[in-house]
């Protein structure tokens, strides 16, 4: 596989206007990625798929990463070429974390392999993939409203409510309106008897 700078040059030449940045990996892993802007992401992916020098015919891995401190969600695509046996070319696209604006163009029209994986990223991270043919939840149940892999996700309090509450759980339960832990009832009972 060519050096990432050369790939970037070729992509910029083929897709005019695309803003591409190189993101380094760890020193040992040596897997630098191309950060593409949302508008040109589809065109860049199409170029990488169809250009005879790359022939990235297989989109192996799609996933989301939530960078809470930086305020964006990153979608990572690992592209491999089965025809030329080379790769990976790693594409990264960033979208703001706010649910209304968190959308990136879907690459499922180019690679069927992204279908379930993009659904999974939508389910767990709330990334809306524009142009996905069937964007529904896949792992969580349909009635679920949140996106559990986001770093600021907190599970609802009443899920794991211990009957013999320890201090922390007791405080949480007291904070929640209308729930009195049984241990508190027992204590109140004792106080009455005295």
């Amino acid at each position: 596989m060519e050096a990432i700078e050369k790939i970037k040059e070729q992509v910029v030449a083929a897709v005019p206007g695309a803003q591409i940045e190189i993101i380094p990996s760890t020193p040992a892993a040596q897997q630098p990625a191309l950060l593409v802007d949302r508008e040109h992401c589809f065109a860049v992916a199409k170029f990488l798929k169809e250009d005879p020098r790359f022939q990235m015919d297989c989109c192996s891995c799609v996933t989301g990463v939530d960078y809470l401190a930086s305020g964006f969600i990153e979608v990572v695509y690992h592209l491999y070429s089965m025809a030329l046996k080379q790769g990976p070319v790693i594409l990264k696209v960033r979208a703001p974390r706010e649910l209304g604006q968190c959308s990136v163009p879907s690459l499922t029209p180019l690679w069927r392999g992204g279908e379930f994986q993009e659904r999974e990223a939508y389910d767990l991270y709330g990334v809306k993939f524009e142009g996905h043919p069937d964007l529904r939840r896949i792992l969580m149940w349909d009635e679920f409203t949140d996106h559990p892999m986001r770093k600021d996700y907190t599970p609802p309090l009443d899920y794991e409510w211990e009957p013999t509450a320890h201090d922390e759980t007791l405080a949480r339960a007291r904070a929640q309106e209308g729930i009195v832990p049984p241990s508190a009832l027992v204590e109140a009972d004792k106080a009455k008897k005295k």
């Binding site: 990996s25 020193p27 040992a28 892993a29 990625a33 192996s60 891995c61 990572v76 690992h78 790693i90």
Partner: peptide, 20 residues
Amino acid sequence: VPEGDGYARTESPKGELGFY
């Protein structure tokens, strides 16, 4: 582990098993 990201894949009996 030093800061950064990486992807490794193996040929598991079911197919390409990778970790990102």
